[in-house]
Nucleic acid binder design. Sequence first.
DNA 1: AATTCGGTTGTTTGAAATGAACAATAAAGG
DNA 2: CCTTTATTGTTCATTTCAAACAACCGAATT
Lengths: 253, 253
Amino acid sequence: MNKKRRTDINSYIQSKGEVTMNELENLFPQVSSMTLRRDLNYLESQNKIIRTRGGAKSIEFLSIGAQEERYLKKTLTHIDEKNIIAAKAVKLISPERSIFLDAGSTSMCLAKMLPDERYYVFTSAPNVAMEVVYSTSSTVNLTGGEINRDNLAVSGAGAVEFMENVNVDIAFIGVPAFDLHNGFSCGNINDSQLKKAIIKRAAKVVVLMDSYKNGINLPYTFARLSDVDIVISDGKLPKEFLDEAKKNNVKVL
Amino acid sequence: MNKKRRTDINSYIQSKGEVTMNELENLFPQVSSMTLRRDLNYLESQNKIIRTRGGAKSIEFLSIGAQEERYLKKTLTHIDEKNIIAAKAVKLISPERSIFLDAGSTSMCLAKMLPDERYYVFTSAPNVAMEVVYSTSSTVNLTGGEINRDNLAVSGAGAVEFMENVNVDIAFIGVPAFDLHNGFSCGNINDSQLKKAIIKRAAKVVVLMDSYKNGINLPYTFARLSDVDIVISDGKLPKEFLDEAKKNNVKVL
DNA sequence: AATTCGGTTGTTTGAAATGAACAATAAAGG
DNA sequence: CCTTTATTGTTCATTTCAAACAACCGAATT
């Protein structure tokens, strides 16, 4: 079995949403269509895609209902960068640890990549929580409060209080905006307070930030560079950022 | 175009997850397979199902990954009864009200039926919360705490405390078991405490109970018949239950 | 090096599913 | 009652499919 071909086919389908046999045959002229069909069947058995007449569709794509499109758009922008970041982040996690996963599409990416082990997971996002419950054997805790329609985060007074009483080994914080002068900021006061509370409680603070977030300002600063331990990005951050990080003893991956 | 046939086909697919053409042909012997195929294509164009070779699959179902199957099984047992119950329940709800939706598959059914209005929704289930966020314009509040893998309920001390501070006009409580002697009971102490707290805070308490739950005992009683205002069931409850309900001034739908 | 073995890939082939095109039927409107 | 339009049924050529077997590859064993 050619594993690479199968993962290639899968990523192609995941990025395009669907394929036809003809497409695949052009894409992989070296292999026979029977083999491609076998690959599709395999991927279907793994619940990655579903077979249709003359091709296949991505399950990810289908599972996103019409109403979710607004959120979907955000999920899909810069998806490659987010996958890179999440792949780096998942390496920092080991079983039986207590981890916090923020709300947002990058964290969701990370949640999907978690190996099926037992962790103690805290999160403020119901979608992340469900993903972790389903795909790992972890204990999952969710902060309570009102759900923000934009990023699906639960926040508010209750959430802050909840997080003030837990110890986390490693917290993964999504970042809506960063600016050298104002630090990490976001557009919602509740989210900002929750992030602050978590950063205070976490032994290690890891920030997930794709390079498009750099140079943007939002109203509420929740952390400075000096407050975090590791910044994970996609390798396209400018030199000034890297210098400033080094000055603050922050590792950049 | 026969609209009823198409909605029938759709609900059949939604409840079973998938169909084959043969199945449909047996189900609708009056119509030709070409027509059925046309129906499937139509439903696909409406994003209700996706066509496969020799049949179709529910989109809802696909979004449920392999790991979710355990929960899925519960979702699918007695699905008709649950739909009947949810349909009755949704009639009790009007816009701008503050409502509580319990965890569990019956509540999830109810959530899916909510018209797109603005409510103030409180729930202890992240899947219910997401459904309501996506399909209505409501303000959605989630209780915090640990997620129970069996029923996807968030419960624990935090959840109880959270619910003690809110006012709900109408609470829909799912029931795992009922017995004339021990009242409504469930198998988890945390869930039981949360249900108790909600019943205390709700102006009107509505219990969603399919008839299969009658005559079963579980360790933790969270309410007596006299504590609730309305019991919604599927019309298959025994006379003794109805008598007892009348004695306690409980309406049975 | 030759042999064997497990697994993957290619080819042939008959069966199944599909949709186009046209015929039949039902429904709607004058 | 006739005309028009939409839906449904039937036939049929085309496409897609997987079973079965053959060929191939690579690794382990002799």
